[in-house]
Amino acid sequence: MKCTFIVYRFDPAVDKEPRYQEYMVEAEPTDKILDCLNKIRWEQDPTLSYRYSCAHGICGSDALMINGRIELACQKLVRDFKTANNFVIEPLPLFKVIKDLVVDMNPFFEKHRTVRPYLISDEDPPEKEWLQDPENQKFFEPALACIMCGSCTAACPINRSNDKYLGPAALLRGFRYVADSRDTATGSRLAQLDNEDGAWGCKSMWWCTDVCPKSIPLTKSIAQIKRLIKEEEKRKTAGS
């Protein structure tokens, strides 16, 4: 069947302003949106740029705005949309466009770095594995599904108003290490997140959770950080 694709185009070398270009694509209902973009590029217009690699929602390359909603192009099929076979494809919002659908994700990864996304332990590791309660692993397991696609952070309204806000993805990573029983830096991690640019920046607007292609309960995970911060405070005041 015929589908119309209206695609955002911007080449800094020639364009002053972004523009939209229309393509007709012959597609199956089961084709992924990524397949359609590939058809445009291979059969009609090789100058179109976008990122992709795994093609099944695991590498995090191809988060885009599809018909006004953030989605992974490789995880949505033509038949998933009730838009009369018309598609508007735009780059991920919030980030600066480099070319066409390719955006600069550096600020996203910079924030990721600041949460110290690695295990910190002041204990020497045992000869074999550290023992860990399976319930503890289950508690933070949902956070492990993150593919760093940036959808959540791009969708978050708070992120748009405060560019210092860590954003849901980096907070999720923070949560993953705060919750891991093997990590001994919990106190300083919580202290780092205990401010308006950290966990308290989240006003539970649920946009991140809504768009996450891996169905990660982001808002709840951020709420867990807030809960842990409060518990830590209580413990401190009780102790003093």
């Binding site: 295990l119 594995e129 550290w130 309660d133 399976p134 692993q137």
Partner: peptide
């Protein structure tokens, strides 16, 4: 595997907490 675990890889666990 132990090295990965020490680096923080979050393996699934047995009821007694082993990998």
């Amino acid at each position: 595997i132990y090295e990965l675990e020490h680096l923080g890889v979050p393996f699934n666990r047995t009821p007694e907490g082993k990998i």
